[in-house]
């Protein structure tokens, strides 16, 4: 076995913890978690990530690829330093999400699925995040949710992300 591993030791330890949740012969149950862990570390799900995870979980690469392309939060391309996903579904829209979006696009000078020229922010349109009470809602880099992102807080949010 070659030890040319893609991820950090910590990442594999985390994946091992996920594997331990499932019956021994059901390692592939950990594929979503493994891809999320890899994305958190590598920034995106590259072909190499898919191959590595496939090998680690005894899966066919195409089976991992199916998963990676099915679930919307996996980045199949590199993103900026921050991936900013904003929900535009009806409850958020009723709370002004579209105005927030317009403001974000103007401030960052980009459209959805683009990255600001300084590489700071990639803007994504997202579906209901299950937090409509705090609408409009955004998620930064998959893990950090913020609510009540009206037009008035867009500037400070963008400034904050640019500093990251």
């Amino acid at each position: 076995m070659t030890d040319r591993r893609l991820l950090s030791i910590k990442a594999y330890e985390d994946i091992d913890k996920e594997i331990a949740k499932y019956p021994v012969e059901r390692k592939s149950s950990a594929v979503m978690a493994a891809l999320a862990i890899a994305q958190n570390e590598a920034g995106w799900v590259s072909e190499q990530v898919v191959e590595d995870v496939a090998a680690y979980l005894d899966m066919r690469p195409i089976a991992v690829w199916e998963v990676a392309t099915f679930y919307g939060m996996y980045n199949l391309e590199k993103t900026g330093r921050s991936k900013l996903a904003i929900c535009t579904n009806l409850p958020c829209a009723l709370q002004g999400a579209n105005k927030t979006v317009d403001q974000l696009k103007a401030k960052l000078g980009i459209d959805f699925n683009q990255t600001s020229s300084d590489g700071a922010v990639t803007l994504k349109e997202a579906e209901c995040m299950g937090a409509c009470g705090d609408a409009p809602v955004v998620i930064i880099n998959d893990r950090e949710m913020r609510g009540k992102i009206g037009v008035e807080v867009v500037d400070s949010l963008v400034e904050e992300l640019k500093l990251r």
């Binding site: 066919r60 195409i62 690829w65 392309t69 099915f70």
Partner: peptide, 18 residues
């Protein structure tokens, strides 16, 4: 498993891994 259906919904496509 040589082929899979990648993507979701209308964007689903039959393909092999890259």
């Amino acid at each position: 498993m040589e082929l899979g259906m990648a993507g979701r919904g209308e964007h689903s496509e039959i393909m092999s891994f890259v």
